[in-house]
Design a protein around this nucleic acid. Structure first.
Lengths: 195, 195
DNA sequence: TACTGCATATATCGGTTTGATATAAGATGG
DNA sequence: CCATCTTATATCAAACCGATATATGCAGTA
């Protein structure tokens, strides 16, 4: 979902400044399936204001930089609902961790195991944090997505713990042989062996 | 992982053209955790060639456009391994589907249920396709990532099937009341209710 | 037969996103 | 007292994404 729609959604229930939107988008449950930076949010807000989908005014603050607080217009609300009714685009998922794992026959075994252990640790932290704030999530839709996210993380943790041993074993056949085999496959056009 | 590193990885086991790289990156198991378009791949290959990390020559083909086939240099192989040894960046996951679900109290219930059913159907197709090509995945590292990916999809499918009923029930409290409650929370600074 | 659409193959272009950085001042903490 | 964090907005280059252009062969079909 593009940043403009994200901003509309963030403004639906309360008026906010760009900074506040960023903060909320950075914490659960939102950060688990959408992320943005200031570099996207501020231009998006400017454009939304030009299009009349949001309205804003500068609130002067004591001892703080001025705050530009925006809220949705009726047109903005309509626009948001329109966007949500469109068939959703495909998920986009990019994971350096999985990429490294996939390429891990190039790397020292100890390094790979450390990578997996760090991943398990970071999953455990996310899970702990989610458990702590679980009772704050009361809206039905929010709760549904929260629970789904939780099951994602728990599932990955379980998989890594249960399958870590597969990466501990000695390296498979020597690399040169494997390469020769794949090269053969390639030339004989028999198997589309994955990458 | 940036596109240049991706291309190096794709060239590790066999020489390829940009088109072939794109094709392989578009199919499992690669498409499940990395994606790229031509708009990224061709510039990346040009730059890699300028940097001496890959070498290429144009193969003339009968009845087809010319093919520029690249392969890794020793410097390219070293560069790839260096990149893989760096601590991996965080996963990036963006899902329009989850975003729509999260906002689903704005949408007609039937629409949301249809969305979920379509999601289940598409998960089931992915799972079927993975099962069909499962026996082609033999490399240990590839197999590990493949199995992890499979468990992702299977987990999400199970969750959606088991929890779909939660979205069937009548809408919770009327929206205006809920809004008032949240507005109160906000002003009293007691609860950081998520978005 | 002609038409339609798909696969092969490379490439560019505009718009968007990302990540780092600039600016500025109060709050926090060692 | 100094470093670092938080609040607050903003910009910029580099990278990325999606659509489109170009050209040809091949398979299916009306």
């Amino acid at each position: 979902m593009d940043t403009r729609t994200l901003c509309l959604a963030a403004l639906l229930r309360r008026e906010s400044s760009g900074y506040e939107i960023k903060k909320r988008l950075d914490e659960p449950p939102f950060c688990h399936f959408q992320d943005t930076g200031f570099g996207s949010i501020y231009p998006a807000l400017t454009r939304l204001a030009n299009e009349g989908l949001i309205e804003g005014e500068a609130h002067q603050q004591e001892k703080r930089p001025d705050k530009k607080v925006f809220n949705l217009t009726e047109a903005g609300r309509t626009h948001l609902i329109d966007a949500l009714m469109q068939p959703p685009g495909p998920d986009r998922f990019r994971s350096d961790f999985l990429f490294c794992l996939f390429m891990s026959d190039l790397l020292p075994r100890q390094h790979v195991l450390r990578l997996v252990d760090q991943r398990i640790a970071s999953l455990e932290q996310v899970i702990r944090e989610m458990e702590e704030c679980a009772d704050k999530v009361t809206r039905r839709a929010g709760r549904f997505v929260f629970d789904l996210g939780y099951s994602f993380y728990a599932n990955e943790r379980a998989f890594l713990i249960n399958n870590r041993h597969r990466l501990e074993e000695e390296t498979e056949e020597p690399r040169t042989e494997a390469e020769e085999a794949e090269r053969h496959d390639y030339h004989s056009h028999t198997a589309g062996s994955p990458l």
